[in-house]
Design a protein around this nucleic acid. Structure first.
Lengths: 129, 129, 129, 129
DNA sequence: GTGGTCTAGACCACG
DNA sequence: GTGGTCTAGACCACA
């Protein structure tokens, strides 16, 4: 399910991108699936369809979606995605370091953090088919 | 070392906050240490001092820094910080999930991700005094 | 061989026109040769036959193809083509300038660019009957 | 000088991108120079400033410009551009082949084409400092 | 002052 | 029907 918070200071477009990325990552939509049309999703979220179109386009540019005029929007299969190799590896590491930064700043115990991470990974594992 | 990227779309102010948080988290500056003055840091980074002042202000509001007029800016010790438990726990989890999302989107192996995280944690451990 | 990229932002119709023009230019199909039928080509490319029909129509209008109902689609001989002198000269110059713009933007050496062009021309020469 | 044709079927945004690329390539604006502000250029061209902003952003994404909120828009020096190596080389070759395609389609003589290209290159040379 | 985001709605071209 | 482009103008955040 894709949801956004119109009261957040984070731009709707960014929220949408994140929500869709997350939905794909969690497997809620699979490769080849069609996403709601620009106008449909906009209506569901009560935002302007232009905002949805911009988010879809950004995700196409980053290789996650295939936006086809007159056809609709589709999730690309993993192997056809562009950035799998170079960029994404760096982005994952960056993400992990960001999490560690948060943990250290709040004085979290090293062991506690490790538990947290392993717990989240377990949930990931559990959700897998 | 605090660096920023003037070409990024991320506001300089946000970048600064993140960079200072990260420096504190990595232990480059310790509790009680003084940070460069607003004008000094602004000159070092070639940005407007107003931007630095606003970033310092935000970090003060979130309890990380102590800004004393005429004295300077100092890193607060952990126990004096405000947000240790309440918000930060949620933020850490959010961060970890973000990392997992990235990993899944790029088709990364579960075990590989776990290795990556544990490796980063080890580096954290090693850097600790 | 005619290929298209359904994920491109460039309209399929435009891609098709360009691909056919290129195939003719490269001599893959010669004057008098028949092109695949609208429905045949559409099936080969997995696109709507309407799109193919429109592309053929455009190329007919620009004098490259001859579409004969019930017979098929044929490549016109050069001398029967319409636009040999008038527009095309301008278009060629425009094309060349575009290439030069690209070269300059990427800081390419003048001599290197000249070599590149002469090399490509040689390939053209070699491919000629 | 940056001009566009509002009657063209080519999107204004695309025309703008091309015009700015060309202006940079021809050396009308140099590395470090400021471009007109979004609203200024829009007023000059009698189009909406949003369209200008989108074009500027695309050129930033492709590494040609540096768009700084609150500061303005600047031309990046060559060495700081992103795509100099891999992509642009392919794009130049593609461009050259496009020009050759046009030439062959219009039945242009091989020697004539070569002359045309060398002439254009001379103009490039002449315009260089 | 700058650019960024969002809404609103017209109009177009593609499939 | 789809998405794409452009205009228009409000509102915001940054420098």
């Amino acid at each position: 399910m894709i949801t956004i918070d119109v009261d957040s200071t984070v731009p709707l477009e960014d929220q949408l991108c994140a929500a869709i990325r997350s939905a794909i990552a969690r497997g809620e939509v699979s490769a080849g699936d069609a996403l709601p049309s620009v106008r449909q999703l906009a209506a569901d979220l009560s935002i302007h369809w232009n905002t949805v179109a911009r988010a879809y386009r950004r995700l196409q540019d980053s290789g996650l979606l295939s936006v086809r005029r007159g056809r609709g929007v589709f999730v690309k299969p993993l192997q056809e995605r562009i950035d799998v190799d170079e960029q994404s590896s760096a982005r994952i590491t960056e993400s992990v370091r960001g999490a560690i930064t948060e943990a250290r700043l709040s004085g979290m115990n090293l062991a506690a953090f490790q538990d947290l991470v392993l717990g989240e990974i377990k949930q990931w594992e559990a959700g897998m088919p």
